[in-house]
Computed example of a mutant assay.
Amino acid sequence: MQHTVSLGKLFTIFFKINAVTFGGGYTIVPIVSDEFTRRQHLIDDDEMFDIVAMAQSGPGAMAISTSLLTGYKLRGIPGALTCLVASALPCLITLSIISHFYLEFQKNPFVRSVLNGISGVVCAVLLVTTYNMAKRALRHHKVFSAVMMGMVFILSFFLHVDTAYLILMSGMAAIVLFYFTDREARS
């Protein structure tokens, strides 16, 4: 499925996506996924799902990690660096402008109204992204995925277990179940 894409096109795509998307990594994921799986046909759905899973598990901003890993997948290290710069640049530009006019923005009722409206849209996008990721996760290993999602939700929402522990616990359970059981089956 993989075709080549120029570094200039990668830069343009990620710069545009990051310049107009509010709400962080989970709001950017469906846009990046749609762009590279459906429009450009450069990455298939399963590969994109893996990229998102790796981006979530690493440190730092998920939007930047997703961009970096997508660039690496498509063009290696030059692609990763191109997408990293293209993703970080809109944030730096926006924050520089906002910091310069911070007091005016803070007092402006129009700006506050816009931000309140955007927060509603971000919530909707997060719900759609979560639903799509759950649907993909349940495609393979249905029982394991459903049990892990339920356990993590309960531990996080009701018992307030730290996210780092939940990620570590989920990773360890997956290693034990899939690595060691697959290894025994191959022996």
Rank of each mutant, 00 (worst) to 15 (best):
L95Y: 10
T130F: 11
T37Q: 12
V152H: 01
I28H: 09
N18V: 08
L42D: 04
A173R: 00
R139G: 09
Q56L: 11
I167R: 04
G25D: 05
L10Q: 01
Y26I: 05
S96L: 10
K142A: 05
V85C: 05
M151R: 00
E104H: 12
F180E: 01
L126F: 11
S113K: 13
V85K: 04
H41C: 03
A19Q: 06
E184L: 13
F144D: 04
D46S: 14
D162F: 06
A63F: 02
L74Q: 06
L159I: 14
T181D: 03
H141Q: 06
E184A: 12
Q2R: 14
S65Q: 13
M48P: 08
Q40S: 07
I93C: 08
I154A: 15
M149A: 10
M172F: 13
M151P: 00
S119C: 03
D182P: 04
L42A: 02
I28S: 11
G117L: 10
D46M: 10
V20C: 07
T27E: 07
V161M: 00
A124P: 04
A88S: 12
G150D: 01
Y26L: 12
T37A: 04
R39D: 06
V128R: 08
S65D: 10
D44C: 04
S57P: 00
F157K: 12
L42I: 04
V114K: 10
E104S: 13
I98G: 05
T94V: 14
V176F: 12
V125C: 10
C123M: 11
R75V: 00
L84N: 00
C83H: 00
L155W: 01
F178C: 01
H141Y: 08
F36K: 02
C123W: 11
S65I: 10
R139D: 07
M48Y: 11
I98C: 09
